[in-house]
Amino acid sequence: MANKLKTLSKTSRRNYLTYVLVILAYLVLQLLSGSLSSSLKGMLVPICAYVVMAISLNLTVGILGELSLGHAGFMSVGAFTGVTAAVALQGVIPIAPLRLAIGMVVGAAFAALAGFLIGIPVLRLKGDYLAIVTLAFGEIIKSIFNNLYVGMDGNGLHFSLLSDSTDLAEGGKLIIGGPMGIGGIQKISTFTAGFLLVMITLVVVFNLVNSRSGRAIMAIRDNRIAAESVGVNITKYKMMAFVTSAALAGSAGTLFAMNYSTIVANKFDFNTSILVLVFVVLGGQGNMLGSIVAAAALTILPEALRQFADYRMLVYAIVLILVMLATNNPSFKSFWSRITGKRDKKEAA
């Protein structure tokens, strides 16, 4: 076993470490579930959703090297389409986990479609256009869902824009109610479902990164001209990373929305996109384990600071600044490498 571990490459070892840590965290939390506070228990599913968001954005930002400022837009697409699917299937599929899984797949599919559509023009361009377009995309998605009405009755789904003209038959139900969002959602998201989604996300992302395509994607990030000169299809590989990232964000959106009884489009605004970007930057670009830790820590932190009352967000901001300073401090870094030993030193060199 020890020999086998040695023969593994550095990245594989790191990936296995990530898997093991996530599984350990899940097992420990499951064992402790009786003694956990309601506060922490209530945060487990959102943490899973944010972890998936952070990993998927890290794929775009850290691996592909493009800045996306509208990641919450994909989450929103996934949340609304996934929940609509789950609600519509409520009568057909009585098993809640299966319904949740179908909801996630539908959410991921629609988010991937949205990512593909905006990717067609934007990913052909050089420069920071993706940041601007995704920023606009997030706002557009918010406006669309704020004005979209979807109802369901015996005749199937009805759609209308701007005002509620779905005109439902007797016994029909309005699923998406414009600015009211979706209400009365059955809470079927569980921590186990969240954990499985995190694992799937890790498997997808690690396998993509370690594949031939992944190397092409990173080659584009490192030097576009060099990559182009050896025959890498720039748009194709950019699209591959971006659509994967969007799809994962979509399933995270479904998971998140199904954890609350109500969801509104305004929840997935620019601030949420930036929050996820903060997870990525704090955890380290291209560092998936870092993203996981940062997403979990920064979701718990504001709740852990509740005793500071009105000064809570001030303290949160200061802690954020301190963490950023500390992790980028050369003396801190050398101190850290002294503890962790040779391996990281080699990495640094």
């Binding site: 506070s37 309601s38 506060s39 228990k41 209530g42 959102p46 609350y260 109500t262 709740e303």
Partner: peptide, 12 residues
């Protein structure tokens, strides 16, 4: 809504 559920759990 998300923060409200967190706040509610803290009260619980």
């Amino acid at each position: 809504a998300e923060k409200a559920v967190n706040a509610y759990n803290a009260l619980k």
